[in-house]
Design a protein around this nucleic acid. Structure first.
Length: 508
RNA sequence: GGUCCGUUCGUCUAGUCGGUUAGGACGCCAGGUUUUCAUCCUGGAAAUCAGGGGUUCGAGUCCCCUACGGACUGCCA
């Protein structure tokens, strides 16, 4: 191992929002490099102008920011290897293409897309797959076939062309993958991939290799979908004379759909019943909205924690990890090799855990905007108390109102199931007597009220459960909520008496 | 079809050098705690380690084959 500084990159293509698989790739890159004290850069791979989606780049940046994945170089922050947008690096790639051609490792090809399409269709109809490769490259229109003069003439007359890599015959190519070990492929299986398009931009393969080299990337950590083209990349490093500086590869297992099979994709949107994007996304063409984890109520830390465990584990039984702890514990050796199906239930559990461990001050702050919308501006100490009382019933912050509305408003209706189970013929009378007891409670605290009511129950030989359940029904409107006397203390004596009175009237 | 990658409870996974009652978590079920709901606690069901062959005294762990799944197979990334 060289002493080269660890440098990784996250290199998405701005063709839409980043889905959770992409976020996980970014996360693993981040954890890996931070653990080793390295850098991480964000490079935007926008060499396909036809698939460019406005807003996607900003979305990617915003998502990483929300997740706390702080890259220290690249689009948005700049750095010594700028520009970091491949479309802005157009002029850089030319010389490398030239180098490949001059060394007979690449060639000009003038075949029209239409022609190739036709051939592809023909093969398809015969249930074969067409591949432009060493077996047939001499049957096409390229600089290996036509004369140098003819090639020159075509280039000078602006005839559209692409550049293809000239894959060697029968060579064993080895890819050393940090997760999968050594992968061996015979070059005869590979096709002469287009590395430079007729629009003047390189394709992913070339741009990726050139930029990774120029940006001094030490480790390429990317999705498994790139494994099949990794041998091609190895070849490019070799032909460009960069084999010694070739980064180490790690191909991450894919994130699969929870139902059935197949890899999770952007297209899945909300179809699966859970968000596949970190942030909400509005399609600029259709205006279709896809939900995001953030907007669905997930805490960034919980989201990250959950994502980290999809394909990686620390080898201990600890499951709750802060970003700092993840960095400390992370290693590529502990990343699994098989794809994982995403489990929305487990995601909820993580969020629940994070809500539970969140301190009341922060939770109170998070809940304040929603209350403000309802024109409720509780005293801070009071809100802190309420938050503390209902916290363990919440998986999401937005569930607060559902769990705590009765602290602010008397119930408008009574849960029918609760009425059926908790209210009977004697309830009205019993509640009247309880009301009297509460009326005379002084001072009015949870403890005093409880003592008085319990004393009353004992004295009258009433059933504690029945009394308490009926009383809760009148105060809360349902069979839920924290300690009833805590609620009573918070809403106060007058409000308590009114709710009892109203409840008796309504329920009879 | 071809190439490559993968396969331990329903799901996420532990299992790194072959000897475990195959462990944990989510979810599920039951019991306990509580005046309710939730939390929490305890317990339970749940993997013949994809299947079949080897190697070995002994294999989830090593080897081979098969099956199944996935990715890739574009002038997309």
């Amino acid at each position: 191992m060289s002493k080269q500084k660890v440098r990784v990159r996250f290199a998405p293509s701005p063709t839409g929002p980043l889905h959770i698989g992409g976020v996980r790739t970014a996360l693993y890159n981040y954890l890996f490099t931070k653990k080793l004290g390295g850098d991480m850069l964000l490079r935007i791979e926008d060499t396909d102008q036809t698939r460019y989606v406005p807003g996607a780049e900003d979305y990617i940046i915003e998502s990483l920011k929300w997740c706390g994945i702080a890259y220290n170089e690249g689009v948005g922050v700049g750095g010594p290897h700028a520009p970091y947008r491949q479309s802005e690096r157009k002029s850089i790639y030319r010389q490398y293409i030239q180098h490949l051609i001059e060394n007979n490792n690449a060639y000009y090809a003038f075949d029209t897309p239409q022609h190739l399409d036709e051939i592809r269709k023909q093969h398809e109809s015969q249930k074969k797959t067409f591949q432009y490769d060493q077996t047939n490259r001499l049957q096409f229109c390229n600089s290996l076939v036509i004369t140098a003069a003819e090639t020159k003439a075509r280039l000078e007359s602006d005839t559209p062309y692409v550049v293809r890599i000239k894959i060697p015959q029968n060579e064993e190519i080895f890819v050393n993958d940090l997760i999968r070990g050594q992968v061996r492929v015979n070059s005869s299986q590979l096709d002469d991939k287009v590395i430079f398009k007729s629009d003047g931009l390189p394709t992913y393969h070339l741009a990726n290799v050139v930029d990774d080299y120029l940006m001094e990337i030490s480790h390429v950590i990317r999705g498994e979908e790139w494994l099949p083209s990794a041998p091609l990349h190895v070849l490019l490093y070799r032909y460009l004379g960069w084999e010694d500086a070739m980064p180490q590869f790690a191909h991450l297992p894919l994130l699969l759909k929870p139902e059935g099979n197949g890899k999770l994709s952007k297209r899945d949107g909300d179809r699966l019943g859970f968000p596949v994007f970190p942030l909400q996304w509005t399609d600029p063409n259709t205006n279709e909205i896809s939900s995001g984890y953030k907007e669905s109520g997930y805490l960034a830390d919980a989201f990250i924690n959950m994502l980290a465990f999809l394909g990686w584990n620390p080898g201990t039984e600890q499951e709750i990890f802060s970003m700092e702890q993840l960095i400390e514990a992370f290693s590529l050796e502990r990343v699994g090799r098989s794809g994982s199906k995403f489990d929305p239930e487990k995601a909820k559990w993580f969020n629940h855990k994070y809500v539970q461990q969140m301190n009341n001050e922060i939770l109170a702050q998070l809940v304040t905007p929603e209350l403000a919308l309802k024109v409720i501006h509780p005293d801070n100490r009071l809100l802190l108390t309420i938050v503390g009382l209902v916290k363990n019933r919440m998986t999401f912050v937005h569930e607060f109102w559902n769990q705590a509305s009765f602290f602010f408003y008397a119930p408008n209706n009574y849960d029918s199931k609760a009425v059926k189970e908790r209210w009977n013929a004697e309830s009205a009378y019993t509640m009247k007597t309880v009301s009297t007891v509460i009326q005379t409670t002084q001072p009015f605290t949870a403890q005093d009220a409880k003592a008085r009511v319990m004393h009353h129950i004992a004295q009258q030989q009433l059933n504690t459960g029945q009394v308490m359940n009926a009383l809760r029904l009148l105060i809360v409107g349902a069979s839920k909520g924290p300690d009833l006397f805590e609620i009573i203390q918070i809403i106060g004596k007058e409000e308590t008496l009114q709710r009892i009175k109203k409840g008796i009237t309504v329920l009879g």
